[in-house]
Nucleic acid binder design. Structure first.
Lengths: 160, 160
DNA sequence: TCAAATAGGACTAAAATGGTCCCACATCTT
DNA sequence: AAGATGTGGGACCATTTTAGTCCTATTTGA
């Protein structure tokens, strides 16, 4: 499924929530309520985002989190990097594994090309767009070109 | 890591091996030897590929597998579809999960755009290219535009 | 000094994945 | 006709990864 972890999914929701009022500080519990995710999970996500420099935290009473940058300046690549690590389709990142297999490792070149293309695509999507703050542009125009059998991709959330 | 399973990786190696002589039938054991993968694994991979219509099998003595189409007509998208299922970054494919969360599900629209872009990128890469049969084109030109910190993506294989 | 928050990490449970093996069926050769 | 060679399909287990929760320390405002 070329899949992305749930934490990344949650992170997007949380970030989108923060993006609706970028300057305001909001406590983890508050974000948990408005996103309907559990508090420990939201906390975990926010900790990760903080360490990655995506959000800025204030400790102590009346503390909370806010976006470190404007939603327009946060890309999908950056969000994915937080919980998924650097974007790469194949494992074998460089030094460790020896591709002993005759000379079949030419295959690697092709995947690199694919990786680069994916990265480029992700760089073009901003949190501003993900959060639907520019709704008109995002959905209509580029999506029309999508083939009919294309997979549906939505945001998944725990039921209840 | 936005990662792709190892089976897909193996599938690519096997397909690349088949692509070097598209018309010849080759037994699973033979392919296992030349790819240095274990036989059961190669078998599993080939079974999957057969069911997906990527290869054609002949049973019985002197049986084996061969590509169902020319390497130029097999895309990375098709290969990924075999073991990863339809390309989609997020889970929640349609009917099942109800995104109860206020109106945050706008986020979905953005991921769809990302998905479409990724799909497009994958559609442009053929097995012919992955197998390095047109080496010159694949590596040099498009890769030059890649940023310096881009992840290395190579083919991973079991050590030993 | 107390209450409200975040920071960090440990820990558990669950799910996906990888990999192997076994047996049934098909086909060629002798 | 029989046996050898191969694929087909699943069942199965072990390992790894991922989710998710909880506990404790630290910071800050009232």
């Amino acid at each position: 499924m070329l899949r992305m972890g749930k934490l990344t999914d949650y992170a997007t929701v949380v970030l989108a929530s923060l993006a609706q009022d970028p300057s305001r500080h909001r406590a983890a519990a508050d974000l948990a309520d408005s996103t309907r995710l559990s508090r420990p999970t939201v906390s975990k996500v926010l900790k990760g985002l903080q360490r990655a420099g995506m959000v800025i935290s204030s400790r102590g009473a009346h503390g909370g989190y806010r976006l470190a940058r404007r939603p327009e300046n946060i890309t999908a690549t950056q969000i994915l990097d937080v919980f998924e690590g650097p974007i790469a389709i194949t494992e074998c990142s460089g030094a460790s594994s020896r591709c002993g297999i005759e000379r079949q490792c030419r295959v690697g070149g092709g995947w690199q090309r694919v990786n680069a293309a994916i990265r480029r695509a992700l760089d073009d999507v901003t949190l501003h767009q993900l959060a639907g703050l520019d709704a008109a542009d995002v959905r209509l125009a580029p999506l029309a070109a999508q083939p009919a059998h294309a997979p549906v991709a939505r945001l998944s959330l725990p039921e209840s």
